[in-house]
Write a protein that binds this DNA or RNA. Structure first.
Lengths: 202, 202, 202, 202
DNA sequence: TATGAATGAGAATTCATTCAT
DNA sequence: AATGAATGAATTCTCATTCAT
């Protein structure tokens, strides 16, 4: 029932995905009608149902892309030779930057994931969990190396940090006084500092 | 046009608000019909429209309550005699606990605020900004006193922390391995630690 | 079921009638809610239902007033001593002026009479017929006296003229270039001229 | 937003328009529900909203047709070679006949135009003004030629006459004693006579 | 690959009226 | 004489999806 894009190059599906992303972020999933999307993409409803099995499919596909890309980026940072704290900081800063650069995707995550059909929701959650686990592994590595405090659970820290990151969509304004790079630096710094060993610190 | 409950004791409006909160959190605002709400509350649609001008009004009223309560709590903590870091930590831990205890409200905030009519959305945002500012004032006080680092903007820290707090609704499970108190302690600790002055610390 | 105003002096019923007239003319009967009327009059719904049995009653009462007044005026003109053409012309001019002065009533007649309950509609029609008949009698008198042509049925002329009069509500603007008196003079003149005997005229 | 019938031949839109006309004339616009219309036309509500953007659109389209047809007819009469009075009389008689033959349309005009959305109302008024202006031009031509009196403004005469014409919907009964042709002859005659030059006449 | 007509279920909201007080 | 809470039926309109072409 859920047909997949036949080819990534056909253009029509790309346009549909792009417009859907924009509209979902702007008005919310339920407030965006299939009609709105196809009009914005300049195609007909029939065409959309040719490429995507349903409106839900569209949302699911948007999530899929974002997660695939994020995971790929994180893997690059995690694989470097540097010590854990340095790798973690770089990865954290990077995730902030990419989040800001793909704000629409992030907004959709926060506002619409709960609207996905249960099955697809589970799939997305599982994917995201894998992503979080890679991040957690970095923290745990730092804890084992004695670089990070151990009195706070690594996965709680991950949730703590990603909460902040997702929240960027709520407060960050492109034309505000902080550049994406500055926010990334502050966020990564706050994360690293909060992992400082207290014994050492005092 | 938007009629308000005349008295908090009439019962019908209370019941409507309670059921609406529960359902909005569970299914999302757009997926919850007025029919669902009135059925759950055991009243007729007409009665609902007697007390609330619209479905939006219901959501707005829910936000209003939460914000009024949160602001009241924060004021208590901010007013104590203790030094800023202690007051901040207590307030931070408290906000985590109350967030967990009122998870439905918090979920609704994250998922549905963008669905409010623009005017009401502005009103809620303004109210929340006032709340954030009280929090920021505490951090700035600590910075002035030399207790906190000053190389990170206080309002960025506030957004960083409240991002984490709102995210609780996404990951925290009541029957998980961490009690609300433990999460609160960790969160407040991470916040305070991340504000440690580096010069002093290293 | 249909309670009548207890007293014409109580004030509340007067206010209700006045506001209802204004609103019915402005938005139409069906688009004006009982709520709108009572709010404009500064009373509650209960009060309105105390004085008037229904929304229909309100409309019916408005018609009643207009017709009573119009009939009274016409009787005065018809009863004078002057020859029929002069009396007709005076009556015609007067009906134009009063129509302009009570534009709201006239608009309501044109737009909402068909919305009355059938029984009440019949009653109003009967009343209006009586009014038209007085007018027709004037014309017939002129025809018998040899002042008016006889090759056109008097009642057709009455309908012809009152069509024009009711239409004033559609086109006449108070601040236009013609004063009510000028319009009245033209209308009465057109009526009288159109009744000129052709044989004599040519 | 307001989709228009793609083709006049599809049938469904024709049927909707015909039934809507019949029902609006009989019960009034506000008292006719979309449900009533689609049931009478034997289609579903969805189908109706496929062809017409709203109930208002339906009404607007009805007006559009009538005006287009009327204008076309008038142009034919105005273009003939005869002297102005003869052309005016023919046009006036024709408008009476077509009005009687399309009584439903005319009733709707009188009773429901004020219910149209302001924008559409303006559009219809503008169209009708153009129609009136053609009529007025005929009268002015007769005035210039010395065939008609000049002491009464031509546009007042137009409103005077069309008031009578619209009023036909209120009083004319098909099975009454006057045929449409007879009424048309009387009306046109009254109009022409009322334009007679008094000097000449007396 | 694409169209666009058609469906049918459900959405929020309005409203005249009643009635206990 | 007046209130205001409550009803319940009706109303317009939206929308994801299907299907013959």
């Amino acid at each position: 029932m859920a047909r997949r894009p036949v080819s990534a190059a056909s253009g029509v599906d790309e346009r549909l995905l792009a417009e859907a992303t924009r509209l979902f972020a702007k008005r919310g999933f339920d407030r965006t009608s299939v009609q709105d999307i196809v009009e914005a993409a300049g195609v007909t409803k029939g065409a959309m149902y040719h490429y995507f099995g349903s409106k839900d499919d569209l949302l699911h596909e948007i999530y899929g892309r974002v997660l695939r890309e994020q995971t790929a980026r994180l893997e690059k940072f995690a694989a470097s030779e540097a010590p854990a704290p340095r790798r973690l900081k770089a990865a954290a800063a990077d995730v902030v930057i990419t989040t800001i650069e793909n704000m629409d995707d992030v907004k959709i995550f926060g506002q619409s994931m709960h609207l996905l059909a249960p099955g697809k929701q589970r799939a997305v959650r599982a994917e995201r969990r894998k992503y979080h686990e890679q991040f957690r592994a970095l923290i745990e590595e730092g804890q084992r190396d004695g670089d990070f405090r151990t009195d706070v659970p690594a996965d709680l820290v991950v949730d703590y940090f990603f909460g902040s990151v997702h929240h960027l969509g709520v407060w960050y304004r492109r034309n505000g006084k902080l550049s994406p790079g500055q926010v990334a630096e502050h966020y990564a710094d706050l994360l690293l500092t909060s992992l400082n060993d207290k014994e050492t610190a005092e």
